[in-house]
Design a protein around this nucleic acid. Structure first.
Lengths: 180, 180
DNA sequence: CAATGCATGTAATGAGTTACATGATTCC
DNA sequence: GGAATCATGTAACTCATTACATGCATTG
C-alpha cells in the first residue's frame, strides 16, 4: 500500500468514484495514469480496503464504482497521522528557465508567455470552481468537519499559487523585454 | 537521453560540477537520488556529451568533475526549443489536506504549522541567497545573457511561491482555530 | 562516540509511462 | 469525417527509490 493507494482511499471518503473519475480528480496533486490506477484499485479490493459495483449505463460504457470500506478507512486514518514526505516536483519548464541564456529573446518570451497563459487559465477555472462551491455549500464549507473542507482549502491554495506563478511570469517577461 | 539528462547538462553549462553537487543543486526543481545521477553521468560521458576528470582532495574523498562538451551543448540547445512537458507534482501533504476532516483539531494544526514553518525557512534561505547573488553580480544579473540569469529568476520564483505557501498555511490555521 | 557531510558506485525492487486493445456517442 | 469524452483493462518498458558497500574528517 503506497501513497497512490492512500490518495485513492482519501478521495473515496468523499463519495464513491470510478477509476476514471479518480484519475481525473487526482491530477492536480498526484498525477497517475489510468494504467496505474485500475490495477491498484483491483489490489485494494482484493485486500478488502474498497468494494466495487458495476453500474450499467446507456450510451456510455458501463462503469465500476468503488466504495471505501471500514477497513480501508481505518487504514487511511492510520496513515494520515504520519508526517508527510516532502513533495516531489519535476518541472521541465524550470529546467529550461535555468538555461534561459541559451534562448534567443523571442523564444524566451514565447516560453514564458505560454506558461503565464496556462496558469492564468488555471487560476480562472479554479476561481469559478470556488465560487460554485461557495454557492452550493455556503460558509459551512469553512468548517473543518464539512466533507468538502479539505477540497475547499486545497482549491484556495491552488488558486493563490497559480496566480502567483502567473505574476512571476509577467515579472520575467518585463525583465526580458527591457533587456536590449 | 531523458529529462534528467538534460537537467544535468543544463547545470553543467554554468560550470563543471561533480555528481554529488548536481544531486544537491537539482533538488528544488528535479529531485533525483545519487544512485540515478552517477550511472547517468557515466552514460552521458560514454555518449560524448560530457567529459570527466578526477580531482584529488586531502581530508575528503577524491571527486570526479564533469564538464559539458560541444556535442552536449548542441544536444541541449536542441531540446530547449521543444515545448516543456507539464509539471509533475506529488505532494503527500496535499493528499492529507484533502482528507483534513479526519484529523482532530490539534493534529490538523500541527500538520499545517509544520508545513508553514518549513516554507518560512525555505523562503528566508532563498532571500539570503538572492541577496548574495545581487551583491556578487549586481544588476548585470537581471540581463538575459548573464550566466546566472536563469538561476536568479528561478530563485525569485521559488521565493515568491514559498512565501505564498506559508501565507496560505496561515490562512488555513486561522480558519481551523476560529472553528469551534 | 555518534551523527553528519563529503564522495562514488552497484543491485534489487518498486513506481510510473507508453503502447496496445475495444467501442459507442457527441461535438465541431 | 475526425477528434474528444466516457470507460476499463493488460503488457512492455523506462524511471526512480531503497538498500548495500566503503571510508575519512569534522562537529556536537
Amino acid at each position: 500500500v503506497n501513497t497512490l493507494a492512500y490518495t485513492l482511499l482519501s478521495l473515496l471518503t468523499r463519495q464513491p468514484y470510478t477509476g476514471y473519475d479518480l484519475t481525473r480528480i487526482m491530477e492536480v496533486f498526484w498525477r497517475a495514469k489510468h494504467s496505474q490506477v485500475y490495477p491498484l484499485l483491483a489490489k485494494l479490493e482484493s485486500d478488502g480496503y474498497v468494494v466495487s459495483q458495476w453500474v450499467e449505463q446507456s450510451g456510455k460504457p458501463n462503469k465500476k464504482v468503488y466504495t471505501i470500506t471500514e477497513k480501508g478507512l481505518s487504514k487511511l486514518k492510520q496513515w494520515l497521522q504520519k508526517p508527510p514526505a516532502p513533495p516531489v516536483i519535476r518541472d521541465e519548464f524550470l529546467v529550461k528557465v535555468i538555461a534561459l541564456r541559451y534562448f534567443d529573446k523571442e523564444s524566451a518570451i514565447s516560453l514564458v508567455t505560454n506558461r503565464m497563459e496556462t496558469y492564468l487559465q488555471k487560476a480562472a477555472a479554479r476561481e469559478a470552481e470556488l465560487n460554485l462551491m461557495r454557492e452550493e455549500h455556503g460558509s459551512r464549507i469553512e468548517s473543518m468537519d464539512h466533507p468538502f473542507f479539505g477540497r475547499y482549502v486545497f482549491f484556495m491554495r491552488a488558486l493563490r499559487l497559480e496566480a502567483e506563478e502567473a505574476a512571476w511570469c509577467k515579472w520575467v517577461l518585463d525583465l526580458i523585454r527591457s533587456d536590449k
